[in-house]
Design a protein around this nucleic acid. Sequence first.
DNA 1: TTGTACGCGTTATCAT
DNA 2: ATGATAACGCGTACAA
Lengths: 341, 341
Amino acid sequence: MRKTGQPTINDVARIAGVSKKTVSRVINRSPLLNDDTRKRVEEVIGGLGYVPNPQARALALRRNFLIGLVHDNPNAQTVMNVQQGMLEALHDTEFEMVVRPVDRGSATMLEDLRHFLERQRLFGVLLMPPISENEMVAKLCEDAGCRYVRMGSVVLDDAEHMVASNDREAVRNATDYLIAQGHRRIGLVGGPHGFRSARERRAGFEEALSAAGIALPRSMVAEGNYTFESGMVAAERLLDLTPRPTAIFSCNDEMAAGVIHAASQRGLAVPRDLSIIGFDDTPIAAHVWPPLTTVRWPIASMARSAALKLIADEGEAEVEEPSLFLSTLIRRGSVAAPPHE
Amino acid sequence: MRKTGQPTINDVARIAGVSKKTVSRVINRSPLLNDDTRKRVEEVIGGLGYVPNPQARALALRRNFLIGLVHDNPNAQTVMNVQQGMLEALHDTEFEMVVRPVDRGSATMLEDLRHFLERQRLFGVLLMPPISENEMVAKLCEDAGCRYVRMGSVVLDDAEHMVASNDREAVRNATDYLIAQGHRRIGLVGGPHGFRSARERRAGFEEALSAAGIALPRSMVAEGNYTFESGMVAAERLLDLTPRPTAIFSCNDEMAAGVIHAASQRGLAVPRDLSIIGFDDTPIAAHVWPPLTTVRWPIASMARSAALKLIADEGEAEVEEPSLFLSTLIRRGSVAAPPHE
DNA sequence: TTGTACGCGTTATCAT
DNA sequence: ATGATAACGCGTACAA
């Protein structure tokens, strides 16, 4: 209690008249403990305001009470939503969140990550897409003895290690909605190659069209990279077609905003001349004009759930926390029936 | 070297044939060391791939190698920019970044923060605005023996603890630019009470008008809270005036986007009927139509500099890292001369 | 210039 | 059910 002002386990032990191992048992909720002694120790702990020193625990346990967020996601809002969800789960626990961006392109990425995990002895890591889709990264965590949970658009791992959304189904529903409005010429602004979410969303789109007996010419598909600019460029290509699409599904909101932008620039009114649906429901969706009809991706909830899995006691994770999250269509102002021809 | 697979300082000492204290001296760059022994030890370190265990160091030094980011900033993009700047500075160092959002409204905020600092024994914290403007928080860090650097729109602390931008001057220049274009009826969409940045930016605005001999009726000032929606609302009030302003300066880009939105909705063309300038230069500025003329706020650079100050060796911080960052006007498409009357 | 012995605050081992 | 003692890996007096 002298040096730093903080009481230590020794202080508690001395005052409670027990050994420090007993105090340790109380802290770690050891089952084999006399209720009386436990109570006595707990009272001393409370009175002293004693809190175990995380550094000492980390050294002894060879494991830190840190949860890592490993990501290479370019979307600021998405990353913030994930952080917020994680922090909700970690709030009032002994865990802290450390953020680790990685560079997927880098040749030393895996090595860097291994060093990070081994040196920091993280309790666990949350893997955000798209890096979460990399099997070698998951393997790496496993080998490093580091818990991990992956977030993704499709189940890539067992329940203990995965939190997924149903992107394919959600996009199928969104596309069905477009079809139900009467649209037949529907364009797609796809996400970048290498993003599993892009693949799933596109698959959902194609399934819906196929189920409705609508052909999808290659020209009706334009690939973007999830940025506003790429959405604009893709839309320009799509809107140059004759006849042009009466509706466009965009694989994220950023690109959808770019589509609106491009449409407005060429004097097309949304949704009168062109209907648009996005994906994510980030703030931009509500701020563009007209407000974007979009698929709400519950990324913050997913992150919270993932973090809870990470810090759950062994074995009870899959029982407690759901692994599959449902994305739902949010109807706003960017969809209408197609114009008469 | 047995248990965890990682070599320890003892392994290095044994193999190099020196005591571990000598190894420790090499690691901590002690000046009084024979060059030969240092070289020998360094070779063993390199050969073994030895890296000091951060947990053990933290325990012995009673100080963690963690840099905290403490913030209560609502803008996702701003927070991400700060994180990116910090991480640039921390890259390839032994430091990691832990993120700590706080709730300014909470009565226990200060106590929570104190517990956080004391328990985690952070090496240092970066304070983002607006929480960085709270003197009690700075005092708290001081008392907890935790280094800190504050980010802000005005110098609130000595160079060692402060990284600031020149918001007032930057807004004065931006407003001068509007005046130079011929505008005389210029409205202000201000930031929320309690944000120092809002005060500084408003002051810069008022100074420019005053210097040009232009009166500023109270009705030409509308307060927002840095959100898109509040910008819309504020703009609606301003645009209801008769005669209405020919230009509006908005204290951030989000609100400026809301202003554009409101103007477009009532059929006003930007910049023909209304000129607009924002502040921040976040991605939204380039994505709205027309692209927003705005003041670039070098927040990522500020954060990088702040983090470098935090981890700099004692005493050399103020010499190495600049404390004042200049915001500059980025001219895009949202400003023109006022319409003829 | 280098080494010895001990402390940092906790958990683990193995008795009792 | 509880306790003495040894890790965990590194830094620091103080001695040599």
